[in-house]
Design a protein around this nucleic acid. Structure first.
Length: 566
RNA sequence: UCGGGGGUCGUCUAAUGGUAGGACAAGGGACUUUGGAUCCCUCGGUCGAGGUUCGAGUCCUCGCCCCCGAGCCA
């Protein structure tokens, strides 16, 4: 077999590592890192990177560090570093005692900067930000040297020292690498290494007022930690020559940077900027809104971490820009939950059913399997009585062709219970609305089976009216209407114009079986015939709240669609 | 326009120069005490033009298309 999902380990990055191991490039070591900037919550795109970095370390008997790339105090917050750790752990990965911060290395980075200045490879520039941009040239024209480019080593050292001491305003000076203002790679046109930022850092406080840029920090941090393979996304490809340059000038351990294509998912957005906009604009209830592609949102939605890991394994790793169909993610979720989620019965839109020939005060405890996919999950008792609720959608007064559910005169099976036949329909005289159904049951079919070989095509879920628990159920749908939310018709509109107005439907007065009384937030279930649901943290003692994780495939919807199409 | 990176079924992803395979999606069927799940089948692809070769997705040449890059963001 040569499929992506049956042969994890065949992607181009793992091939490079296998080759490096063969040639003993890093002394047989494999050491990766996941380097998030703590300026937002992790989303499923990060999960791809986490699974890649931690997964590779695991597979090759190596290590993977968690390192916060906290070089910009104006955007980073402690709240994010906490959520990021929680999310990585939730996915099932562990960094042991290797939790690091770029800020751990600020002293070393400063010393190395001084070394580059002494070597004549870095200088303090006093051009304004705007001037620096002008001097940089364009994509097609070379840049020109700053008039400050040839300051003496002594002057550079003095200025840099005073930058650190806080003598200057933000923007007055920057430290730049002295490389080549004519390079066709703009990253090599004397990139900025340090900028003055009079900001309080979430970890170093006011100890520093100059902060290293990503380019100056990243490779050196990798080097300090002994990283062998520094895996990042495609947009850093152009930075690799710079990554290599710094390491070469310093003559320190030189990891290999490898770039791969970031994850894109249909019907969703995966950019921190846009996610932040959804949160701050109140389009969702927060970072953990179950409609968000954030790990905290998916967690609240009920997505199991293993499903996300399986998904990340299946999508593969390559350099091709791609958009993964969200149905693959949903498939992975169903696949996982099908094996593990206990089945229960819940009626979302209740329709009262009276079993006319069932004894008034009788209650039977019927046995129900918890998961037909896994007998070890055992059975439970479900109460059955004279008055029940069934799903409103499961009754049609004028049943169309191929309708095997309830209708006047029709016999159906109540799951785990009895065969019942609809004998009467009570309607509101004014509105015509169906108020309740009257049925008779066949006592010989207890457990849902008939000895006489009689066939019933339809099986319905139900709850006993007097035993059922009330619940609120939140039905989630895709957050966006278009596969590509950025595709907008009107001018001036943006991705928010494609928000799905029906991405959340809240149902109250739902009825669930009494065994759910002990359910706690995070518990996942399959509501028979409906889908997978989990208990939301909004639940209180007397009031259960469920989130729909993902619906079951509804094949009736398909039949109806084709019937209508004719 | 300059530099970098890409282009294989609808969507992803495989294929020492040797039968283009798998997954998801779609369509059909079997089965079923969830119209669920499961199982089976079908549909469907190498960006284009030349060249090398017994043989090219793979090698060469020339095109075409897409993505990234001009933050003191990462």
């Amino acid at each position: 077999m040569t499929t992506a999902d049956s042969a994890p380990g065949s992607d181009f990055i793992r091939k490079i590592i296998v080759e490096d191991l063969k040639t003993n490039k890093f002394g047989g070591r494999v050491h990766t890192r996941f380097p998030p900037e703590p300026n937002g919550y992790l989303h499923i795109g990060h999960a791809k990177s986490i699974c890649l970095n931690f997964g590779i370390a695991e597979e090759f008997g190596g290590l993977c560090n968690l390192r916060f790339d906290d070089t910009n105090p104006t955007k980073e917050e402690e709240e994010y570093v906490e959520s990021i750790q929680e999310d990585v752990h939730w996915l099932g990965f562990d960094w042991g005692d290797r939790l690091f911060y770029a800020s751990d290395y600020f002293d070393q980075l400063y010393e190395w900067a001084v070394q580059l200045i002494k070597d004549g490879k870095a200088y303090v520039d006093s051009l304004s930000a705007e001037e620096i941009r002008e001097y940089r040239g364009t994509l097609t024209e070379p840049g020109k040297n700053s008039p400050y480019r040839d300051r003496s080593v002594e002057e550079n050292l003095d200025l840099f020292e005073r930058m650190r001491a806080g003598e200057f305003e933000e923007g007055a000076h920057v430290l730049r690498a002295k490389i080549d203002m004519a390079s066709p790679n703009l990253n090599m046109r004397d990139p900025v290494m340090y900028r003055i930022l009079h900001a309080t850092h979430h970890r170093t406080g006011d100890q520093w007022c100059i902060y290293p840029t990503y380019d100056w920090a990243h490779g050196q941090c990798d080097s300090i930690e002994g990283i062998t393979h520094s895996i990042c996304t495609l947009e850093f490809e152009d930075h690799r020559p710079l990554y290599d340059w710094f390491l070469d000038q310093l003559g320190i351990h030189h990891p290999q940077q490898i770039e791969f294509a970031r994850l894109n998912l249909s019907y969703t957005v995966l950019s921190k900027r846009k996610l932040l906009e959804l949160v701050e604009g109140g389009y969702v209830t927060g970072w953990d809104d179950p409609r968000m592609p954030t790990l905290s949102g998916l967690r609240r939605r009920g997505y199991p971490p293993q499903a996300i890991r399986n998904f990340c394994e299946r999508i593969g790793v390559a350099k091709t820009n791609s958009i993964i169909d969200i149905s693959l993610l949903e498939h992975c979720v169903r696949e996982d939950l099908n094996q593990r989620a206990p089945r229960v019965m819940a009626v979302l839109r209740p329709l009262k059913v009276v079993i006319d020939n069932y004894p008034e005060d009788q209650v039977e405890e019927l046995e129900a399997v918890n998961n037909p996919e896994d007998p070890d999950m055992g059975t439970r008792k479900v109460p059955f009585s004279r008055v029940l609720y069934v799903e409103r959608d499961d009754f049609r007064e004028d049943p169309p062709k191929k309708w095997f559910r309830l209708a006047p005169g029709r016999e159906v099976r109540l799951k785990h219970a009895y065969y019942v036949t609809c004998v009467d329909v009570v309607k509101d005289e004014q509105t015509g609305e169906v108020l309740e159904l009257h049925c008779t049951y066949d006592p010989e079919t207890r457990g849902g089976w008939s000895e006489d070989g009689r066939k019933v095509r339809g099986t319905l879920h139900w709850v006993s009216a007097s035993h059922a628990l009330d619940a609120e159920v939140r039905l989630y749908d895709r957050l966006f209407l278009k596969a590509n939310p950025d595709e907008v018709d009107e001018e001036g509109a943006d991705f928010k114009a494609n928000l799905n107005p029906n991405s959340l439907e809240t149902l109250t007065g739902c009825k669930v079986e009494p065994s759910l009384a002990d359910a706690v937030p995070g518990d996942r279930f399959q509501f028979l015939r409906l889908g997978y649901f989990c208990v939301d943290p909004d639940s209180t003692d007397g009031r259960l709240v469920f989130n729909r994780t993902v619906p079951l495939r509804d094949s009736w919807a398909k039949i109806e669609k084709t019937l209508k199409g004719r």
